[in-house]
Design a protein around this nucleic acid. Structure first.
Length: 698
DNA sequence: AGATTTACTATTTTT
DNA sequence: TAGTAAATCT
């Protein structure tokens, strides 16, 4: 075993955290401060001083992060850290619940529903409950989300291990509560848990007198990374686990809390010192990543926020150049500018893998993607539909799920919807029957589909044929290949022009599944994987000579020499959905902060003054750009075709009646081409663009 | 009646 | 591109 020389390998800030004694501890770690490194050394230190590795529980934000962390701790110790429990809250919950179930004599199998499955099931429930068939329109995604997250995040009915130190969930309308109840019932009937059920049930185990005690004794050290992005359930789990010994070390940066939309509560980290009055508090504020110029922008932007620990990053990297602000006329120009700049930097010797373009929402990158493809710039795309989210992957997994659990309603919904001749009505009838089945053989009997039309029967038979083919195989990999060779392949070929790619994906999935003995273990983990694991499954090597396009959310924890933040326009970044809400606005600003602090040496902020729509409408630059003091940035005027820099002129006129009003605009934009020949500044005039806007409520 | 096709619209972020 | 509503097919 290798002896670690902590004083040589860590700075003073980090050392304090690693070598502290036991007890509750909050580490406020700024961006680029070596947070991961610090946690890793802390774990290594615990093992070195004689703690049993399997008594250490390390909770991370993604599965990939957990895997990396374990590897690095192993490398530090010159052995392996296999005994350490490392994973996300969800994956650890899964492990613990499976163990608990089997030791209590139940079959340790249950289905895990991801977001899409949850929605599918919720919709089926609402349809059957005849929700809003007459008076209301079909529920909006927002209402759906409300109901699901209510059932997910509700803390009712849990005997409180911790005393009532956490705020209660706000009461909702009785109608929604009723739907939530029905939804929960259906989950139970399907032997399924959604993401928050995993956490919820873990909490229930902690509340159990004996099991809770056993868990508290087992895990003597709880370490949580990215604590700012935990939700109410997760905070209570940490509390419930550490209640006895108090060895909870949480690390996070309140300035990087960007997951409120999915239940993360920034109050968890802000409140930690009050929760644990004897908690030690450390700050890691030395930033090793970015130039001082980039940090100035980050620090300055964040000062606008109120809800936070006041802290400022201190840079030690060499000075560089000021971040560059690039106003452009149209979204096309923006895409061309970025592509141009990337090629220019590459020709000057910068590696593509050191560059990234970040954006608020996947859709913002479409034009840029086209531009990159056109110019043969290889890139790796993060965001949008993920590998495990692709339709054919989910279809295949649905087959495996049904074989494992006939009652799995969301899987049936998916599978039946694919069949010709089976529509929503027949599907829900068949599923209602399947819910009472005990084994797959029950649904395979002829009597099961009595009374359906001939066309339906055909669809059903082809469905069963696929299931039979898969069931005959041993192990998840072979099952996946069986499905890829069944009637499902014909379906793909018939349905999608890119069916070959999709079959390739299935082969990738099969190869990935080879790592698993039984379908059960495979399915349990697949539902919890993050996209990084998916990309590995799809065979993409992110370290290739490729640049990265990513949403800001997916860029969390990563860094590049050169970062472009694009589409910094009002209503795009910050999102228009956050406009009316101050706390959401603060979250958007934190998102901007995360984006800025991904850059090591060069940062470009780009925006276009107009947005292509049914006509062309003017967009002011992002609030976050407007807030920045001009002296922190270098403003880059695009000379070619750009006259004075900003597109020419805007004229607008308002009119309207009581409910809505109209805006007429004339806009003149200069064209900016990508090839030298096109760059002869042509002026195009758009006029009389009409946009309708609702009056803000008085 | 239920399935399918077509036209249209609005479009965040995800363990 | 996904979700919906209206029109059309079986």
């Amino acid at each position: 075993m290798r002896q670690i020389d902590y004083t040589r390998e860590l700075n003073q800030e980090q050392l304090d955290v690693v070598l502290q004694g036991d007890g509750p501890c909050l580490v406020l770690a700024g961006a680029g401060s070596g947070k991961t490194r610090t946690i890793m050394y802390r774990v290594a230190h615990l093992i070195e001083r004689g703690e049993d590795p399997s008594s250490i529980l390390l909770l991370t934000f993604t599965i990939k992060a957990a895997r990396e962390m374990r590897e690095r701790v192993g490398a530090l110790l010159g052995g392996d850290a296999g005994g350490v429990w490392a994973g996300t809250f969800h994956s650890i919950a899964h492990r613990i619940l499976r163990r608990a179930a089997s030791s209590a004599g139940y079959a340790p199998t249950f289905t895990i529903l991801d977001q899409e499955d949850s929605r599918l099931l919720m919709k089926a429930v609402m349809k059957e409950a005849k929700y809003d068939v007459t008076s209301r329109r079909f529920p909006s995604p927002a209402v759906l989300q409300d109901i699901i997250s209510f059932t997910r995040n509700t803390l009712r009915n849990i005997p409180d291990v911790l005393g009532e130190r956490y705020p209660q969930h706000e009461p909702l309308s009785s109608e929604i509560e009723e739907l939530a109840r029905l939804y929960a019932e259906r989950k139970r009937a399907a032997q399924a848990m959604d993401f928050d059920d995993l956490l919820h049930n873990w909490l229930l185990l902690l509340a159990h007198p004996e099991i809770g005690m056993a868990l508290r004794e087992k895990f003597q050290h709880i370490l949580v990374d990215e604590y700012q992005d935990t939700n109410a359930l997760q905070a209570r789990i940490v509390r419930g686990l550490a209640e006895g010994h108090g060895n909870a070390l949480v690390v996070g940066d309140d300035a990087q809390s960007i997951y409120a939309f999915r239940g993360a509560d920034i109050q968890n980290i802000l409140r930690f010192p009050k929760e644990w009055p004897d908690a030690k508090m450390f700050k890691l504020l030395t930033n090793y990543r970015s130039t001082p110029e980039i940090l100035d922008v980050a620090n300055d932007s964040l000062r606008q926020n109120v809800e936070q620990f006041q802290k400022e990053l201190i840079g030690i990297a060499a000075r560089g150049s000021k971040p560059v602000l690039v106003p452009l006329g149209t979204a096309h120009q923006e895409a061309r500018f970025i592509a141009d700049k990337i090629l220019k930097l590459r020709s000057e010797g910068a590696a593509l893998r050191g560059m990234a373009v970040l954006f608020r929402s996947s859709a913002h990158s479409h034009l840029l993607e086209m531009e990159l493809v056109k110019r043969d710039i290889p890139y790796d795309y993060r965001g949008g539909v993920r590998f495990f989210g692709r339709a054919h992957i989910k279809d295949t997994l649905a087959c495996l799920r049904i074989i494992q659990n006939v009652k799995d309603e969301p899987a049936w919904l998916r599978l039946l919807n694919l069949q010709q001749g089976i529509g929503p009505a027949t599907a829900s009838r068949l599923i209602a029957q399947a819910r009472t089945a005990e084994a797959l053989d029950d649904v395979m009997e002829d009597g099961f589909v009595a009374g359906v039309s001939e066309r339906c029967r055909e669809g059903w038979q082809s469905c069963l044929a696929t299931l039979r083919a898969a069931r005959a195989e041993n192990g998840p990999a072979k099952m996946v290949r069986a499905i890829a060779g069944s009637a499902y392949a014909a379906y793909l070929e018939h349905e999608y022009p890119d069916w070959r790619d999709r079959l390739d994906d299935l082969e990738q999935l099969a190869m990935f599944a080879e790592g698993y003995q039984d379908a059960d273990a495979f399915l349990g983990e697949v539902a919890l994987f993050d996209d990084a694991v998916g990309r590995a499954a799809a065979g993409g090597a992110p370290t290739d000579e490729k640049m990265v396009l990513s949403t800001v959310h997916q860029a969390k924890g990563l860094e590049w020499d050169t970062v472009f933040i694009m589409h910094l326009m009002d209503g795009c970044f910050p999102s228009r959905y956050a406009e009316d809400d101050e706390s959401q606005m603060e979250e958007e600003r934190r998102l901007f902060y995360v984006a800025v602090t991904r850059a090591r040496r060069r940062l470009y902020l780009t925006y276009s003054a107009t947005r292509a729509g049914d006509g062309l409408s003017f967009m002011p630059p992002s609030l976050f750009v407007q807030e920045l003091p001009p002296h922190l940035m270098e403003r880059m005027e695009i000379r070619e075709g750009f006259g004075g820099g900003m597109p020419a002129r805007r004229e607008s006129r308002w009119s309207g009646d009581g409910d809505s009003f109209y805006q007429e605009e004339s806009i003149r934009v200069d064209r900016y081409g990508s090839t030298p020949r096109e760059r002869t500044s042509t002026t195009t005039v758009f006029k009389s663009t009409m946009s309708v806007k609702k009056l803000p409520p008085r």
